[in-house]
Design a protein around this nucleic acid. Structure first.
Lengths: 187, 187
DNA sequence: CGCGTAATTGAAAAGTATCAACACTGGTGG
DNA sequence: CCACCAGTGTTGATACTTTTCAATTACGCG
C-alpha cells in the first residue's frame, strides 16, 4: 500500500554528505503537484525524502489506475533510466512532499561504481516485483470485500490518509462499489 | 503474454562456452512438470532455453493466477535469490521445455564481477516491472472484451498455443466468461 | 457565506460467476 | 477394436456483483 525504503534513503543521505552535494538536489511538491509525468522522457532518478505520493497510470480510456503509494525512501524514474523508454506513470504528491533528484549520469555512475548502491537497487526492483505480483494476484482472485479487508489489515489508517477516489482507483473499482462494501462491512 | 529474452539467452550460452561449463547445467521438463515450486527456498537461477512455461501463484483460496508465460530466455528464481525470500510462484512447463540452472553462488558472483550480466539483469527486472504494470492497469480499467482483444492483438496465436483454462487464469476470470466473450466477438 | 470538490445513496443496466448438463478428445486396457 | 475414462471445452439458466447515472449531502477553504 504505502511503500517505504528507509535503507535506501539513509544511504542516499550519506552519499549526499560525502561528495555528492552537487549531484543530489532537494525539491518540494505541494498537494496535487506532479513530480513526474506519464509519457515523457526522464532525465533523473527521484527519491522521496518525506511526504506521500501516488504512482498512477492514465489509460487510453481516461481511467486512472494507482500502482502504489510512495512514502519515504521510495524511488521513481529508475525503470525509465534503465530501459530508456518514456515514463509509463505519473507521480503526484497527495500531501506536501520533499524529494531528492539525481541526474541520469550520476545514477548510472553509481550503478556502475558503487556496489552497495547497485545491490540496493537490485533489491528494490526485486521487492517491487514481488509485492506487485502478490497484490495483483490477490485482487484478481478474491472479491471486493476480501481485497478491502486485506488492505485495511495491512494499512489500518487507510481511510484517514487516502481519499475514497484514490482507494477505488488503487483497487480498480468504482467509488460506488467501494462505498457499498464499506457500508456492508460496518454493519 | 509470452515473454522472451534472446539477448540474455545468447549471453548465457556464451558464458557456458567460456569457462562456466560446470556451473551452468542443462535440464528438461515434460508437460505439467514443475521447475520451481511456490513457497520453497530457491538455490539457483533458471533460464529457459527452449519451450514454454507458465508462471503462476496459487492463492489462499485455492485459485491460481497466471503471472506470465515464459518462452526462450526468460529467467526465474532471480527475485528469490536477490531478496532471500521463499518463492512466491510456481513455474510449470506447458510444452516440453529445456532450461539452464545456475547455482546461487555463481549467480551472485556474476552479478558482482560481470558488468554486462549485471546490466542485463537490471534491464530484465525493469522491463518486467513495466510490462506487468501496464498489463494489470489495462485489465483493471477495461472490460473483458477489451482485455481479450488487446491480448489477441499482442499474441494472435493465443488460442492455438494456450488452453482456455490458462487464458482464463491469466485474465483472472472464469472459463465460462471467457467462452461467452469469445463467442460474442466471433459474431 | 458561497464555491468547488469529495462523499453518499438509490435504481436500473451491464457484466460476471456459479452450477449443471453435455460434447469432444486422446489415451489406456480389456 | 472398442469401451471407458479423465481432462478440456461448450453452452444455457440463474444468481450475484459491479457499474453507470443521477440526485443529494457533507466538508474545507478563500
Amino acid at each position: 500500500m504505502i511503500r517505504v525504503n528507509q535503507e535506501l534513503l539513509n544511504y542516499l543521505i550519506r552519499l549526499k554528505d560525502s561528495g555528492y552535494q552537487d549531484s543530489i538536489t532537494e525539491h518540494t511538491a505541494g498537494i496535487g503537484e506532479k513530480m513526474l509525468h506519464q509519457r515523457t522522457y526522464i532525465h533523473s532518478l527521484y527519491v522521496i525524502k518525506e511526504g506521500l505520493a501516488k504512482c498512477f497510470l492514465t489509460l487510453d480510456n481516461g481511467n486512472d489506475f494507482i500502482q502504489e503509494f510512495f512514502g519515504a525512501g521510495e524511488v521513481f524514474g529508475e525503470i525509465e533510466l534503465i530501459t530508456g523508454d518514456i515514463s509509463f506513470c505519473t507521480i503526484e504528491a497527495i500531501i506536501p512532499t520533499t524529494y531528492y533528484q539525481i541526474p541520469k549520469a550520476a545514477f548510472h555512475q553509481l550503478l556502475k561504481d558503487d556496489a552497495v548502491f547497485n545491490t540496493l537497487l537490485l533489491r528494490l526492483l526485486a521487492t517491487n516485483i514481488r509485492y506487485a505480483a502478490l497484490r495483483h494476484s490477490y485482487n484478481q482472485t478474491h472479491n471486493l470485500e476480501e481485497s478491502l479487508n486485506r488492505l485495511k489489515k495491512e494499512f489500518p489508517e487507510l481511510l484517514q490518509k487516502i481519499s475514497k477516489k484514490d482507494i477505488a482507483n488503487y483497487l480498480g473499482i468504482s467509488t460506488r462499489s467501494l462505498n457499498r462494501v464499506l457500508k456492508e462491512v460496518s454493519k
